[in-house]
């Protein structure tokens, strides 16, 4: 009997227990559900919002980190060598004899400047004329076709330009002007072609950004279209045009592959347009494959000088832009 009763009691207790447990569970579940609902609500509105914002910010921070890393690694590899050689000697000494430990990039330094000026000398006038044509003269369909063509020109990689120079320009110079053809002239022609899109695009945008009212007023006063372009539109667009030239200069000084392929790469200061030359960029790409120790450091130092050049040009650009804004504001 007792056993049976006890059994029943335990059964009831167990039952009660179970109910209690399930009640507790339910209560717990209810609590969880409520928490979940709250979470889900806030999830949609709060947690990912902040998370996303931080993540997006992180991607911006990564880019700043990348620039910092680039500066630190290039300078930390190059600057000690410049310090031991001496900045003046490194920049202006004409002796580049890595095996004897003589590191002077004078010839390359002059070479870079020379080649950049030579290519700017013909590409800037041609580019500017084309920009004026596209913005002011060309009928709209022609302008659109030109825009496409210039963007194609901009899309051709430098190694293809170099190859074209090697198989067309260099033989032409060799056959008609003499020398080996690998020359300042070949480099200036190819480099000039390469910076044309930069000059055209940016100065065209600058010309098109001149308010139409200026132009209309000038024309209404009886000035001809060309007078308007020369006396009004070009001066008003001048900060944009200078920006174009500075950007093109940066591109020309940093260009590597095309220059290596057509300029002959002799580390001497050229005495004529038909003589070969070596730029700072060529110096790096030609010798990086086998350089070690101080020699490698000297190549990084060459890169550091180039980097400083580019940074200075960028600073100049910012200055021009600010000056341009002030001018436009007045």
């Amino acid at each position: 009997m007792n056993g049976i009763i006890e059994g029943k009691i335990t059964a009831v207790k167990q039952h009660n227990n179970r109910e209690e447990k399930s009640q507790i569970l339910q209560a717990k579940a209810g609590r969880w559900e409520r928490i979940l609902v709250i979470l889900r609500k806030s999830k949609a509105r709060f947690i990912p919002e902040i998370l996303v914002e931080k993540l997006l910010m992180l991607s911006a921070v990564v880019s700043i980190m990348a620039l910092l890393l680039i500066s630190v690694f290039i300078f930390s590899r190059g600057v000690p060598l410049i310090a031991s050689v001496g900045l003046g000697d490194f920049l202006f000494s004409l002796e580049w004899k890595p095996i004897q430990g003589k590191f002077g990039i004078g010839a390359m330094f002059v070479g870079s400047l020379l080649l950049t000026s030579a290519s700017l000398a013909w590409a800037v006038p041609l580019g500017l004329l084309t920009a004026i044509f596209m913005a002011e003269i060309a009928p709209p369909p022609v302008g659109r076709i030109m825009t496409r063509m210039v963007s194609l020109l901009a899309g051709i990689p430098s190694v293809v330009y170099g190859f074209f120079g090697l198989v067309i320009i260099v033989p032409l110079i060799r056959n008609y002007l003499g020398g080996t053809g690998m020359s300042v002239l070949a480099g200036a022609i190819i480099l000039g072609i390469m910076i044309l899109p930069t000059i055209i695009n940016i100065s065209r945008d600058a010309i098109q950004a001149v308010p139409l009212v200026y132009k209309e007023s000038s024309l209404a006063l009886g000035a001809s279209h060309y007078q308007t372009i020369g006396r009004l539109i070009l001066p008003a667009a001048s900060s944009g045009i200078i920006t174009a030239v500075v950007l093109a200069m940066g591109r020309a000084i940093g260009e590597t592959m095309a220059v290596v392929m057509v300029t002959g790469n002799a580390a001497i200061i050229p005495d004529s347009l038909l003589a070969p030359l070596r730029t700072m960029t060529s110096n790096i790409v030609l010798e990086m494959g086998y350089a070690a120790g101080d020699h490698q450091a000297a190549l990084f130092a060459t890169g550091a000088i180039l980097f400083i050049f580019i940074l200075l040009l960028n600073l100049l650009l910012n200055f021009i832009r600010r000056a341009g804004k002030r001018y436009a504001g007045n």
């Binding site: 911006a60 880019s63 700043i64 990348a66 620039l67 890393l69 680039i70 690694f73 290039i74 590899r77 430098s158 950007l247 940066g250 591109r251 000084i253 940093g254 260009e255 590597t256 960029t281 790096i284 790409v285 990086m288 190549l299 990084f300 890169g303 180039l306 980097f307 580019i310 940074l311 040009l313 960028n314 650009l317």
Partner: peptide, 28 residues
């Protein structure tokens, strides 16, 4: 200031010649 810094970084990165990227990629 942060937005200015990021824009400046983008401009600078765009102006750096590929050979410098090559040097950096090699050493880093």
């Amino acid at each position: 200031y942060f937005a200015y810094l990021v824009t400046l970084t983008a401009e600078t990165l765009a102006a750096i010649p590929s050979i410098i990227y090559g040097l950096f990629g090699f050493v880093f």
